[in-house]
Simulated assay, not measured.
Amino acid sequence: MKVQKFIASNMIEAMKKIRQELGENAVILNSKQISTARMFGLLKKKQIEVIAAVEPQPKMKDVRVKEKRKPLSRTEKKPNVRNQSLTSSVYPADEKELNNQIEELKDMVQKLSEHSSPDEYKYYPIPVQTFLDHLRKQGINGMIMGEINAKLLNDWRSENREKTEQEVYQSGFQHLKELLAGVEYGGSQFQKKFINLVGPTGVGKTTTLAKMAAQAVLEKRKKIAFITTDTYRIAAIEQLKTYSSILNVPVEVVYKREDFQKAIKKFTDYDLVFIDTAGRNYRELQYIEELKKVIDFSQDIETFLTLSLTMKEGDLADIIQSFDDIKVDQFIFTKLDETATYGSMINLIFRNRIGVAYVTDGQDVPDDIQKASAETIVKRLLKGLGV
């Protein structure tokens, strides 16, 4: 059995070294925190020392060649080769004993890591394992997992006691909020006259627009109007006209840039103009160009990219990339009530450094919409942990 010591700054780095040196069949015998001296012994750095071992894989042909058979005495019978197992004929007794010990060790390690966590963190303290496993199931990406992983382990080592589950969860909650800091959250302040919602088909743009408009009328007492460029679906126009009738506000349907300019002039005396755009496959750049031909983005405009959490994260990332030429002020995430995983919200905010204005979780106007914040988003993610 090959036994080797590894020193690393954290368990993830140690596991990578173990795999590289000993392979996937290696087992961890022991791990502990150590301090290494730096700068002539004046400063110390905390690291992890891990002892790992791997069972050598014997080559059957080589073993047979090297095996020396004892000459048979007159009283001994020739062994029945057919009924003799390969293991008993090949391995010497002391090596079989060693194999038994290794198997016992593997069973012991398995019992210590009953939680079904990935190899990178299955040897961590149980509360840390549980928290990281929850993030993994929620779809949090590897970069964020690594950040939270390192912070939680550092928190655990910083005190000379074991932390409770809730203490670990609260630490993770705070660290996730910190990762989402530095971008804008909360609903529109209605500082710009034109409120523009863009996004792919079926994400609920028209309903979300109506919810925002209702808040502007009922809570802010704003004088508003609607513009729709969604001339591809009659149902969408009728839906917006229904909302405009309920709120007692005008609506203009525009087909080209000239129509848009006319609508702007018509609504000169209005406080806010809400623009509903056509839902298209915005992974195709031609639809972005069509959008730019109709809407004058040089106006005093606030643009919200509306995305549904029921979509695959890869598709959402492609759509966001397609809007590189259009300034997106904030995201709006819809259909939170139709999914149980919220990791893509965290991933997209972190990767694109774009904040969130609203989240929606139902069809009721104007109720099923909430102003977003880093805290409310992380709480939604950690709901299963009782945070």
Rank of each mutant, 00 (worst) to 15 (best):
S73R: 10
Q170K: 12
F297P: 07
I140D: 04
Y169R: 05
F274V: 03
Y232R: 06
H115L: 15
N83G: 08
T130V: 11
N83K: 11
L43V: 12
M108K: 14
L247E: 02
I51M: 08
M212C: 07
P118G: 07
V356R: 00
L382R: 00
I148M: 03
D276L: 11
L348H: 10
K292R: 15
H175V: 14
Y270V: 09
F333K: 03
A216H: 00
F323S: 06
M145C: 07
D62K: 14
K223M: 11
T360K: 05
Y287G: 03
N141F: 01
I51L: 10
D296S: 08
N352D: 14
T208A: 12
M15A: 11
A263P: 07
E104L: 14
I237M: 07
R136D: 14
K371I: 04
E76L: 01
E95W: 06
K222M: 06
Y185D: 01
R353C: 12
P79S: 06
A235F: 03
R221T: 11
S244I: 01
A210V: 02
S308R: 04
F40W: 15
L135I: 08
I264L: 14
G139F: 01
G202L: 05
T303Y: 02
T242I: 09
L336A: 02
G142I: 06
H115M: 15
D62M: 09
M1C: 15
I301L: 07
T130A: 15
L42E: 02
P366C: 03
R157C: 14
V387R: 03
K122N: 11
K256Q: 12
V183L: 06
N99V: 12
K111H: 05
L316Q: 06
S244F: 09
E103K: 13
Y255E: 09
K122W: 07
L22A: 03
T268Q: 13
Q261I: 14
D325C: 13
P79A: 00
P366M: 04
E219D: 13
A372V: 03
F297Q: 05
A52W: 04
Q129S: 06
P366T: 00
N99S: 13
S373G: 08
S245R: 13
K45N: 14
K137H: 13
R74S: 10
K44I: 08
E302A: 00
S89L: 11
F331E: 00
S89M: 13
Q239E: 00
D296V: 01
I320Y: 01
M1L: 12
N10V: 03
E147S: 10
W156M: 13
L197Y: 04
V249L: 09
K335Y: 03
Q363F: 05
Q170C: 05
T229Y: 08
Y121W: 12
V109Q: 10
Q4H: 11
R38A: 14
K222Q: 05
E184W: 07
T164R: 10
P118I: 15
K292F: 04
V359I: 15
A374S: 03
I28Q: 01
I320D: 04
E13L: 09
K335I: 04
